Simulated assay, not measured.
Amino acid sequence: MSKRVTLFEPPQLDSSKAPIENVLELTSVDDIGPDVFTNTRPLWHPPGARGIYGGAAIAQCLAAAMRTVPADFAVHSMHCYFVLAGDSEIPIVYHVERVRDGRSYITRTVQARQRGRPIFTTTLSFNKANSGGKKKLQHAATMPPVPLPTPPGSGSRRFDENRGGPFESARAGIVNRGATPEEKKVRRWVRCRGRISEAGAQHAHLSALAYITDSFFIGTVARVHDIPRFTSAAELKMALKALKNPSDLDDEDISRSLNELKEEESADLQRRLEGALSKLQDAKSKSEHKEIGMMVSLDHSIYFHNPWKFRADEWMLTEMESPWAGEGRGLVLQKIWAKDGTLIATCTQEVCFLLRPERMGGLPFPLPVDPNEWIGSSPCG
């Protein structure tokens, strides 16, 4: 008997909705309980990862929790922990617990389970609109002056709106490229493809934002240390071959994503290889050569500053930096602005980051001793 990757037969894609809305659609499981939901469609397994894309679990937990709160409450924070690798070939069941319902704040916890075991858990807090009083203290980080991505057809290859997948992105540069790792900032434009439907309302925009926050996030520690995610075309091919259930992207889209990643890293990699070519012959240079051994997300937090004042299908600027790394872990901070300069959200993530002691054949990342400890990674690092 073949495996079913969803509890129920997935319906046809709804052309009136944006791709991200179809990807994140939930189905109620009334037979289990009133606040229980499951993924309507198969979830994406990123190349090279041991589990599903973490952004899907984050976004669907948020979507499930939002179904249990009044419409005049909006999420202001969610704190997540990746517990076990999510299997893309098994349905996920989301259990929402109504922890507290107050006049100004509501608290929910959501547990994502497979085969009865928790793979992901999050606590969310919701705030009632306009409950901050008439007098308010206000300040916000200013959006840096970064030009919007160049539209297709203008001679630029920075992004292609005709590609598939639920969202698109465009590189916006690295600040302080020649500085120390903690001083560098990686910038990128992101937005959902298509137009989020009126029926989806702001809940759809918030879920889409949550989905996007996990993309490119985990790779920041490697980027500020100039360590490429993939060091050869062979590793790219192995990662693609290991892919399962690419529901969000088809093979051509994934190849494009990997090629974009390769293009981003090629300049830095070429510069490092050219500068170190002669030195790589001796033992000292070999000991200094760094490759990723394992890179997984441990936790993920989002602070939603202006949940009512943005659209996820319009360009948003992300800026990522890593103030600290050590003890096999690294901390990453992310700010996200709407294109009008409104600070939408601030995110944090701690990453388990281990270097490969020596070159090994086989998989692009060696498996940990316990495969259940591998949580998964972002689609393009």
Rank of each mutant, 00 (worst) to 15 (best):
T180I: 08
E288M: 09
K17R: 13
I336E: 02
E235H: 01
A283Y: 09
P228V: 02
S154L: 14
W308D: 15
Q334P: 05
N130E: 11
A57D: 12
E260P: 00
W337E: 02
N22M: 10
K185H: 15
S16W: 09
K241R: 13
W308Q: 15
Q12E: 09
A71L: 09
L43G: 01
E161V: 10
S131H: 05
H76E: 00
L24M: 14
Y303S: 08
L269C: 07
S297Q: 04
M294E: 06
D101L: 00
V29M: 09
S125F: 03
F216N: 03
A63I: 01
K134F: 07
E161L: 15
A172Y: 04
K134A: 15
M66G: 02
D35N: 08
S104Q: 12
Y105M: 03
D313W: 06
T107G: 00
I344A: 06
E291A: 11
D268Q: 14
P151S: 12
I20Y: 04
A85L: 03
T6Y: 06
K17T: 10
V221P: 00
W337D: 01
I344M: 10
R157C: 12
S232M: 09
A172N: 06
R356P: 01
R193T: 11
L258K: 00
R271L: 15
R187E: 07
P70D: 04
A112Q: 07
A222F: 00
R223W: 05
K339L: 08
F37Q: 02
E235S: 01
P144L: 13
K237M: 07
N130K: 12
S266F: 10
V190S: 06
A140K: 07
L206P: 00
M66W: 00
F82L: 11
R117W: 12
P368K: 08
G165R: 01
F310C: 03
T38H: 07
Q111V: 15
P46R: 02
T150Y: 05
A345I: 03
M316W: 04
V146K: 09
Y81M: 07
M238Y: 03
M360A: 15
V296S: 09
A57S: 10
A179G: 13
S297Y: 01
V23F: 07
L209H: 10
A179H: 14
S197P: 05
E327V: 04
A204F: 03
G293K: 04
Q349Y: 07
L277G: 14
P357T: 06
H289K: 09
L84A: 13
P19T: 13
G293E: 04
K244R: 11
P166Y: 10
A204S: 14
R157T: 10
R272H: 08
G155C: 08
D87S: 14
N176E: 13
E274H: 11
P323A: 06
G200R: 02
L243T: 15
A112F: 07
A199V: 11
F217L: 12
A129S: 10
A56D: 08
P145E: 11
H305Y: 08
C347F: 02
Q111D: 14
C352W: 03
H95L: 13
S125Q: 06
G55W: 02
D251F: 15
V146R: 12
V29F: 10
K136G: 04
D214L: 08
F304K: 00
R311C: 08
R117L: 13
